[in-house]
Simulated assay, not measured.
Amino acid sequence: MRARVQEIVFDCAEPAALVRFWAAVLGGAPVDRSPAWSYVDPPGFVRLAFQQVPEGKAVKNRVHLDVEVADPSAAAEEVAPLGARRSGGLVTDEQGSFQVMLDPEGNEFCFVTG
């Protein structure tokens, strides 16, 4: 069987707010399909969807996005006013650099180079 990823879905408390964060980071226009479901189609990437769930985030994500940028530290500063925050420090090795980040609801993602 061959299949393709249609979208990546995030469970969250506030879909309309979270979709606007990710639209600002990756591009695309946020769409609110209902109060419990929003999505964005970032250019050159699969749709990101956000569905409202009653429970809060309790543990580290099992899957996260690596977002390529020219400068992870500068990118981290740029998204801070949008509600993102750093998790730990910048890591650099022979493969490049990465900065673990948390979106406004605490979902981990990384700004990466390389």
Rank of each mutant, 00 (worst) to 15 (best):
R2W: 04
R4Q: 08
V5D: 08
Q6S: 15
E7T: 13
I8K: 12
I8E: 07
F10D: 09
D11C: 10
C12A: 04
C12W: 00
E14H: 13
E14M: 11
P15A: 02
A16M: 01
A16H: 05
V19Y: 00
F21V: 00
F21L: 04
W22K: 12
A23R: 05
L26K: 03
G27Y: 10
G28F: 07
V31T: 12
D32H: 05
R33N: 02
R33C: 01
P35R: 00
A36F: 00
A36S: 11
W37M: 06
S38G: 11
Y39R: 03
P43V: 01
G44S: 03
G44L: 03
F45A: 09
F45M: 07
V46M: 04
R47Q: 14
R47I: 10
A49W: 00
F50H: 09
F50M: 10
F50C: 12
V53S: 02
E55M: 10
E55P: 01
V59S: 12
V59G: 08
K60M: 09
R62Y: 04
R62A: 14
V63A: 13
H64E: 15
H64L: 12
L65T: 08
E68W: 03
A70M: 07
A70R: 11
A70N: 08
S73D: 15
S73T: 15
A75C: 07
A75T: 01
A75Y: 00
A76P: 12
E77T: 08
E77Y: 03
E78Q: 10
V79S: 01
V79I: 14
P81N: 12
P81K: 08
P81G: 12
G83A: 09
A84Y: 01
R86Y: 03
R86G: 15
S87P: 01
G88C: 10
L90A: 08
T92Q: 06
D93P: 01
E94W: 11
Q95K: 02
G96K: 06
G96R: 06
S97Y: 07
S97L: 10
F98P: 02
Q99H: 04
V100L: 13
V100M: 14
L102V: 08
L102S: 09
P104R: 04
P104H: 06
P104N: 00
E105M: 09
E105F: 05
N107V: 14
N107D: 10
F109E: 11
F111Q: 11
V112T: 05
T113K: 05
T113F: 08
G114M: 06
